[in-house]
Design a binder for these strands. Sequence first.
DNA 1: GATTTTTTTCTCGACAGTCGAGAAATTTAC
DNA 2: GTAAATTTCTCGACTGTCGAGAAAAAAATC
Lengths: 414, 414
Amino acid sequence: MLTKSSTELVRQRNSVLVLATLRRHGPLAHTEISDHTRLSSATVSAITADLERAQIIEKSEQQPASGRGRPRVLLRQRRDCGYLIVVIISSDAVQYSLVDYSGKLIDRFSEERSHDPDGAARFVTGVREGLERILSRSRIEREKVLLISISSKGLVNSSEPVLVWSPIFGSDQIDFESALKPDWKAKVILDNETLLVAAALGAREENVKGADFRSLAALSLGHSIGLGIVRRTSHGGHDVSAPNFGHMLHMANGGLCRCGTRGCIEAYAGFYAILRTAFEVPLDTIPAKFVPLAELDKIAARARQGHRISGFAFRQAGLALGNGLSRMLSLTERMPIAITGVGTRYYDLLRQGIEEGLGQSHVVRMEGMPELRVVADEQILVFEGHLNRALAVIDEDIVVAGVQGGTEDVSVPK
Amino acid sequence: MLTKSSTELVRQRNSVLVLATLRRHGPLAHTEISDHTRLSSATVSAITADLERAQIIEKSEQQPASGRGRPRVLLRQRRDCGYLIVVIISSDAVQYSLVDYSGKLIDRFSEERSHDPDGAARFVTGVREGLERILSRSRIEREKVLLISISSKGLVNSSEPVLVWSPIFGSDQIDFESALKPDWKAKVILDNETLLVAAALGAREENVKGADFRSLAALSLGHSIGLGIVRRTSHGGHDVSAPNFGHMLHMANGGLCRCGTRGCIEAYAGFYAILRTAFEVPLDTIPAKFVPLAELDKIAARARQGHRISGFAFRQAGLALGNGLSRMLSLTERMPIAITGVGTRYYDLLRQGIEEGLGQSHVVRMEGMPELRVVADEQILVFEGHLNRALAVIDEDIVVAGVQGGTEDVSVPK
DNA sequence: GATTTTTTTCTCGACAGTCGAGAAATTTAC
DNA sequence: GTAAATTTCTCGACTGTCGAGAAAAAAATC
């Protein structure tokens, strides 16, 4: 409320609103936009006329008229209005996707990540090459790429695209903004991977529940532990954050974590930690850099057959997660928790520990156990989260940059 | 962004903006308002004319002109525009304050709270009587009371004025909305006490640092433990919350807390917990209902003289606080922590434990120790927080209700 | 095939809000 | 007494939204 308002701002907001509903519901007719936005028909006319003149949306060609009356003309985003590159960094590969303004996937490939530790600088070079490659494969002009949206596990600066800490590079910070500035005019954004999962799930949930949706947490189980939280703000938007959950303190002076601290949640619930407990390796052993999934599958199999120590390892992981989640819930409101990631394949073994860990706290005793649900297809959710956020950013930027472009040959009156 | 914008909304927001700057900086002239709000002079004229017509603000009488040129006419809130009653519930008393629309204290008294446990229903009756008393003492019309702002320790529903859990009444919920509806047309709001402290400190901090202020936490030490967090939102407002920090899980299966759960932070850092540790009473002993401060002072004195167990009790309290704060910081961004409440008198004994507890976590190792500062005068901060929030709510309500009231005798043209 | 009905889109005038520029008011300086 | 300085107020231009009704276009009906 610290900043003034003006009529131009009104137009900007309403323009963004129109573009957002177009995103949400696909191509719409004039009347439908009016219904969804609660803007008057006249206002919709004015706004869509502007957007059309600025080459941001277009009338789709004649529909085979369904029903009588004047046939609808659908409005949709112009695909060639701009492009988006999505970069998903995971522990063993980097995936590049080229997407047009309508959200349609145009091209995609993955590049294996070498596991060499000499790290950050080399890695950035690789990303720059990857970006060049996807651009050149497409024949799209460089200037038409409006946004590069990157995601990674780890801790991300909330205002700038800087990877502050990651399981891969540790405290070797990566500033994507300055790394890509020489090559690209496009804006660069960086988000935590689980944050995007939460964003995607929040959007889905709101589509189902509407205004009843309040908040939701996504917990990603894997080599490392991620948490994303999404909350509806007072004015209808979504506020989304990715706290440093995996390295929240679970137990003072506890097991040694990859990050070098003792007692992090990850030091009990990460894959390497489960391995460590299952093999009864001392808790202050420096953890393995990478754990093959097959190794964990074996432990899980043994646990399911009743092997005590193996079962204990998963139970202890669950306890750490449950305690951590209860602490999170003490600091927020009650919200459902969606569990995702490769680790969900061990959910049968983790569940009891998680619920016990949750049950040990005041919040859960008072408000009851939060809803726990397992959600598969983390990869799809990550991409969906990218699109949600990135395209919204593009819409906003385009409108704010000014919707006056286009062919200025309106100067022939009569 | 889900909701449409309109020109009326623009006027509303800008009117609220004008009232807010008037709150912040005291009586201001036309030009000064224009400077602070960045609204044009013409707009300020239009808005202030409306507000004046609606009897919300008034021109102050002639100032002794300082400097040459046409003398300024200061605008200020009309005191009699409406009134606010502030109710501060503490463990041993309830304080009632009557405040006019300009924020000036008109009347105040406290009523001792009987320590009888028969609780909630009786207590509510007491509050209703207290409100009647402060009204009748003042000769103000009941309808002129626009807002009743209540605060208490404990857990508060974020949307409705319902006390969900409190150290005094436990889980006996109190719904102030429905309790006061029969007597009062005024709106009723309820906030956690430490939330108000955080709000007040946040406002002060922003006055000093301006846009550099990002966030801040207030930790209140006393019989129970309170935490308030204030953050600047993207559009310049303040987002403030009071998580259930005192009953966040400190240690699974730990000491028994007043709330009936085991291992809460309060079960280590509350006054009764310090007492329990100092006297080597078993950790599962049901805690004392109320601890005289003199008792704690004695333990503190012994600790300062080197008595081992007494010192250990404070150290352990500090550790619980430090661990808890580190967990909070894992879920938020780095922020300074202001420590307040009666317990600050033992800060010399707590400090080492707090810092050690903080230091055991990944965040603090990475980002460094957060700034810790001791802030006295918690009572003043609570009241200040009440005024900040309540008067802002009143301004908003008045403007939204419509600024068209007042004398409609403008119908004589020429 | 002409007319009516239905549905959608577009246009016009009214109204609300902000802004810049300059007029009006009013005091101090010389 | 006049000029300069400073503050407040007013006017016209511009931008925005809205409701109502005109215009467009296809299906239904006679």
